[in-house]
Simulated assay, not measured.
Amino acid sequence: MSSGSFYQGLLSMTNWVGNGVMPLLAGLMIAMGIYKFSRGGDFERYLWGAMGALSISGLLRLAEVFARQGSGTAQMFEALLTLTDWVCNVILPVYAGIEVVRAVLGVSGVGIRLNIGDDWMRHAVAAFAALSCSGLLRLLEHFIAAGTGGVA
């Protein structure tokens, strides 16, 4: 048995766990959080656990970028660029959706009935800020892509 087949097997297992098992576990954590919420329990730990499980796939992709680039001077810049792109274009829109739902629930009075408080405006501003950050990064990416062809 050669070492190449061992490394290929390790890579296949890592891809299976990161891209197959962890999203399934995230779904189960979200289901458990909904159950805990329906019983009046603390559900945020399940939400954070689901976000962490979904982050495994992104961290796996970051490790693949490191392995593909090898060692070099641009590796840290590319890693930071990939991390920023992933956070701003994947995590922030999902977080904005969560904040919009929290704001709608706050405006509808669900928070008052649950003694959560009247902070719907803070959730709306957080959603706007998250989407603005994502949109600005997309705009910068467009300008950089358009600028690589030279000035016309």
Score class of each variant (00 low, 15 high):
residue 58 G to K: 04
residue 50 A to F: 05
residue 68 R to V: 10
residue 87 V to G: 03
residue 115 N to H: 14
residue 10 L to I: 06
residue 129 A to E: 04
residue 109 G to E: 08
residue 17 V to A: 11
residue 95 Y to S: 07
residue 35 Y to N: 09
residue 90 V to P: 01
residue 105 L to E: 08
residue 39 R to F: 00
residue 97 G to Q: 05
residue 142 H to S: 14
residue 23 P to R: 01
residue 142 H to W: 15
residue 93 P to E: 00
residue 102 R to W: 07
residue 96 A to Y: 03
residue 117 G to H: 08
residue 39 R to C: 04
residue 79 A to G: 02
residue 63 A to I: 04
residue 148 T to C: 13
residue 7 Y to H: 14
residue 65 V to F: 07
residue 101 V to Y: 11
residue 11 L to P: 05
residue 92 L to I: 01
residue 70 G to A: 09
residue 21 V to E: 04
residue 145 A to L: 11
residue 12 S to P: 09
residue 15 N to K: 14
residue 2 S to V: 06
residue 60 L to Y: 03
residue 91 I to E: 04
residue 17 V to R: 08
residue 20 G to K: 07
residue 146 A to C: 05
residue 57 S to L: 13
residue 94 V to M: 10
residue 83 L to T: 07
residue 150 G to H: 04
residue 79 A to K: 01
residue 35 Y to A: 07
residue 141 E to A: 10
residue 34 I to Q: 03
residue 150 G to D: 03
residue 122 R to Y: 08
residue 61 R to N: 06
residue 129 A to L: 09
residue 51 M to T: 09
residue 37 F to H: 13
residue 72 G to K: 01
residue 86 W to C: 08
residue 71 S to T: 03
residue 60 L to I: 01
residue 29 M to A: 02
residue 12 S to W: 15
residue 98 I to S: 06
residue 55 S to K: 05
residue 30 I to M: 13
residue 14 T to W: 14
residue 64 E to L: 12
residue 123 H to R: 13
residue 96 A to S: 05
residue 74 A to C: 05
residue 62 L to R: 00
residue 101 V to P: 02
residue 4 G to D: 15
residue 151 V to M: 09
residue 29 M to S: 03
residue 27 G to S: 06
residue 115 N to P: 05
residue 32 M to G: 04
residue 89 N to T: 15
residue 103 A to C: 11
